Simulated scan of single mutants.
Amino acid sequence: MSVSADGFNASQLFETLQEALKDDKLAQKAIKDVKAVLVITLKNKGGKEQSWLLDFKNDASIKKVDGVPKSDVQLILKDADFVKLANGKANGQKLFMNGKLKVKGNMMKATAIESVFKAADPRPKL
């Protein structure tokens, strides 16, 4: 099932992560490190909202969802800010302090997601 959403730059990141999680070793590490169900709700330049469910509690899966399902933590931010955050070009704490990132639920679980994106990053580590 595609996790891509028209008009969202983050779609590529979710597809990359979904592909990376097919590696059982990475999937098991993600579950071990995060132990949570996360919902990431993004708003694009056109004002459209889309949510993705990242299950790092049961099966290390990603789904594009309508509405906001029950989760341990929800991150709400702009598509562009999420892309910067996932690429390590923005600091989650700074985005949060500046009101660009809203967190509902367990904030400690929200910080754990960063390690999953780093582990799934296909770019060479320098």
Rank of each mutant, 00 (worst) to 15 (best):
M1W: 06
S2V: 13
S2H: 06
V3L: 09
A5R: 15
F8D: 06
L13W: 02
L13E: 00
F14E: 05
F14I: 03
T16V: 09
L17P: 00
A20P: 01
K25F: 01
K25L: 01
L26P: 02
L26Q: 03
L26I: 11
A27R: 02
A27T: 00
A27Q: 00
A30E: 00
K32E: 03
D33K: 00
V39W: 07
I40Y: 11
I40C: 09
K43Q: 12
N44H: 11
K45I: 11
G47E: 03
G47I: 04
K48G: 08
K48Q: 13
Q50D: 13
Q50M: 13
W52I: 14
L53H: 13
D55V: 13
F56K: 02
D59R: 08
S61E: 12
K63M: 08
K64H: 09
V65C: 10
V65S: 10
G67F: 13
V68N: 12
K70G: 08
D72P: 01
V73S: 03
Q74G: 05
Q74I: 10
L75F: 15
I76C: 02
K78W: 08
D79Y: 10
D81F: 03
F82H: 11
V83W: 06
K84D: 15
K84S: 14
K84N: 13
A86D: 06
N87I: 01
A90E: 06
N91R: 07
G92V: 04
Q93N: 08
Q93G: 09
M97Y: 05
M97E: 12
K102W: 09
K102P: 11
K102S: 14
K102M: 12
K102H: 12
V103N: 12
V103A: 07
K104D: 05
G105Q: 04
N106C: 06
A110G: 07
T111W: 03
A112C: 10
I113N: 00
F117V: 07
K118P: 04
A120E: 07
A120T: 04
A120F: 04
A120Q: 10
R123I: 02
R123Q: 08
R123V: 08
K125A: 12
